[in-house]
Design a protein around this nucleic acid. Structure first.
Lengths: 199, 199
DNA sequence: TTTATAAGTGAAGGTAGATTCACAAAAAGG
DNA sequence: CCTTTTTGTGAATCTACCTTCACTTATAAA
């Protein structure tokens, strides 16, 4: 039927994207091999030509997510050297990324991770830790340059930084898109940046 | 076998608590009628003497959660009239509540809610909205009394307030309890309260 | 004490979904 | 053009649950 035979690298990408789309629209619980296969235009058993099992599809999705997060950090580092501006841009980029890839939080905070295999949990912890560490780096740099109050623990700041966006994202979901996350994030940034700025 | 026959009101409470325990230790995905029944000391089919189906068990759990959240608000209102102190106490109470009932965030942010029936989603939105509204009330009171900067939108403040704790809770989970949420929450409160205080 | 009702049991039916396997057919390499 | 490898297919299996039902039996009411 589907006639076309494509190379496994291409199929793997298609499968991961299909999985992320499926997750974004119906959640992790509806992530099924059959559903993914349908979206790719294959029969369920065909998925097993490209992935050993469902878990490996999820791992590939995590890899994709990790790269997108790190891309943002990298780009922000290239755009400016001002620490506060780096933070602001990272926050807005993050908001944009999540808006466009709603599957990301659903995967990262899913129970497959929370209560799944210790290896995967460790992996996601690594992704989060890595991201937070980059934020802490920016904060420390800002403290050394005297732009950010140095009496505040960089780790506290980086967690609060994530908190600027996260509850808003949840609220956005719950209100079916009624709530304007971007606007909230901007306002929250104003309050937050004033709070951490030195002098 | 189980010999004892208890009244349905008692069983319902036992079942809800068993469900919450099960969720706290193994997540929503492992919440099964069989698992709950085992913890209560019943056979799976017995659960249906007390609840119409699994969904109703979950609804009862939501009711329990809603009451605990509102209890905290109520108690904080009775403890003090100072708005900033009310916020601080609510935050610390919230942290304690979640520490002792880890199932709460798992239920509230579960996909059964996120992508489940619109009715349940609306119900949870109501719970969150109600909680945030109480926080906003406190903020507005503080602004009228000149204790909180009035140029900041109360809604922004209340969402940021939730954000003080939420990412820390996730990080706590991910690090298997290594991370000290209470300490972080206290530090974050200091930064935050300074940021919103008037003068 | 008798009896009606509420609670508890075990077997059975039903569904959804992951995974395997033997077979078919396209593509790549020679 | 022929052969090998890679992809794709459909049927079949296996598992994990939810839920129903015909029965017991404890408990409370009369």
């Amino acid at each position: 039927m589907g006639i076309e035979k494509l190379r496994t690298e291409i199929r793997r990408e298609q499968i991961v994207q299909a999985a992320l789309n499926l997750i974004a629209s119906h959640g992790m619980r509806k992530l099924s091999i059959a559903g993914v296969a349908r979206r790719v235009g294959l029969v369920p058993s065909a998925i097993y030509r490209h992935f050993k099992n469902k878990d490996e599809v999820l791992d590939a999705a995590l890899e994709f997510i990790r790269n997108r997060l790190l891309d943002n950090v990298k780009e922000v580092f290239e755009e400016t050297i001002d620490p506060l501006e780096r933070l602001r841009r990272l926050l807005m980029r993050h908001a944009k990324l999540i808006r466009e890839n709603q599957a990301i939080p659903l995967v990262i905070f899913s129970e497959e991770v929370y209560h799944g295999s210790p290896e995967r949990k460790a992996r996601v912890r690594g992704i989060m830790q890595g991201y937070l560490d980059r934020v802490s780096d920016i904060v420390r740099q800002g403290q050394q340059e005297g732009r950010i109050r140095s009496e505040i623990d960089p780790k506290t700041i980086s967690l609060m930084f994530i908190g600027l966006f996260q509850p808003a994202a949840i609220f956005w979901h719950m209100s079916d898109g009624e709530f304007d996350v971007t606007k909230h994030t901007e306002k929250a940034w104003k309050v937050f940046s004033k709070a951490i700025q030195a002098n």
